[in-house]
Design a binder for these strands. Structure first.
Lengths: 234, 234
DNA sequence: ACACCTATGTATAAGTT
DNA sequence: TAACTTATACATAGGTG
């Protein structure tokens, strides 16, 4: 339907297969939706990509459509009285299909982790390789994002602590000037303990933060509220 | 999509609504089928006309597709445990363990491929990262081994061919010296065709190998039987 | 990978028989 | 009502940035 006519057979090139899938999937979903509106029909469309990702459309709803479908199917089973019930058949099917599905997934998973590779062709190995590359880069990207968030959070917290610190110093001043203090504020400890996650990776940063506050009270003018942590990230 | 552009809203005229339904239904079913073939996807399409007539397409089969869909739904619907699928007992789970196991494996697999990572902690991400590193290095190692085997094989073959070639040249000498030859040996062709695998990667090597033998008969003393192929691998 | 482009193939709305 | 035709809108294959 475009620059060139194509044969309806599996597209060899993996990339263009993915691209075509994306385009045609969109087209199909759109037309399914149009059919429901234009012709007052009920439509359910379920699409699984080769990689197992699900796309769906249903009107009025998938639940209703599947129920309606099952109802219809059951009605058409008049010819075979010995056929128990679609439900039962489906369940029995599951008992065969599910274990198979599991062992298949196990195999794929092991291969993704670099085991049992001897039986694969070079092409298959290169496919695995690209999957792993993609996965790795996305994992690294996500990790970086999380580090970034962690850092922003700590910087913010640090700024708050510095202000708190400044306030405390002022109060100390007042005390040493002879005035009486009613209660010692403990908000600093509270602040330090409200954020608990992301394990050891945040510890070094936290340690730095502590050192900002536990050191001898230096003379800061308080005009700069952003923490200088010497971070290797941003 | 034709003589006139139409608004996507319910067609008023009952007749033309029916006609349009018929045409578009056929188009939709066709495109659903094309998607399965072209992109190696699994598709289920269920259409009920306004009058309740059923039309459907499914690949690989409606049963399998509905089962698959149900499992996928189970993955993403942990929150509403209270809904026991009331109006229709679709595929009621008598077996709860297997589907759970499958969805768990699906999740792991997707995460190994770098999807749905937002919920993970940095620790978990780093664990994934090391799994991927390990997998990738083993995949690469296996690939290298296979390339290596391929190369050794080709080198061996090449050496044999050179010997064969040498023998033939000697026979040629004898002929040109006036002696009579009974049969022309054809083992060279046989040798060239016995090894068929590893597609394009071996092609360049094979081409080189041909050039070793098809060139003008050079004066080699035959003491060196290892091929110099200029390979990019080892 | 992604979005965009555009020439071309398809689907189809309306007309015709 | 349905089959067939035709002009047009739409979908999309292959290309580019």
């Amino acid at each position: 339907m475009a620059r060139e006519k194509i044969k309806i057979k599996k597209i060899d090139n993996k990339t263009s297969r993915q691209v075509t899938f994306s385009k045609r999937r969109r087209g199909l979903l759109k037309k399914a939706q149009e059919l429901t509106v234009l012709c007052d029909a009920d439509v359910a469309l379920i699409i699984f990509s080769a990689t197992g990702k699900l796309f769906e459309f249903a009107s009025p709803s998938m639940q209703e459509m599947l129920g309606k479908y099952k109802h219809h199917s059951n009605n058409n089973l008049q010819d075979d009285v010995n056929e128990p019930c679609l439900d039962l058949q489906l369940v029995e099917d599951d008992e065969v299909r599910l274990p198979k599905e599991i062992s298949e997934k196990d195999r794929e998973m092991r291969q993704l982790q670099g085991h049992d590779l001897q039986g694969l062709t070079i092409d298959e190995l290169e496919n695995l390789e690209s999957l792993l590359h993609g996965g790795l880069s996305r994992v690294l990207q996500t990790k970086d994002e999380k580090f970034g968030n962690e850092i922003s959070y700590l910087q913010e917290k640090g700024a708050k602590l510095m202000e708190e610190n400044k306030l405390l110093k002022q109060q100390m001043m007042m005390i040493s000037n002879g005035k009486q203090l009613q209660t010692m504020p403990v908000e600093v400890d509270d602040l330090m303990n409200t954020h608990e996650e992301a394990g050891q990776s945040s510890e070094s940063v936290t340690t730095n933060m502590y050192s900002c506050n536990s050191g001898p009270p230096t003379e800061d003018d308080g005009s700069d509220t952003s923490l200088k942590l010497g971070l290797p990230f941003n």
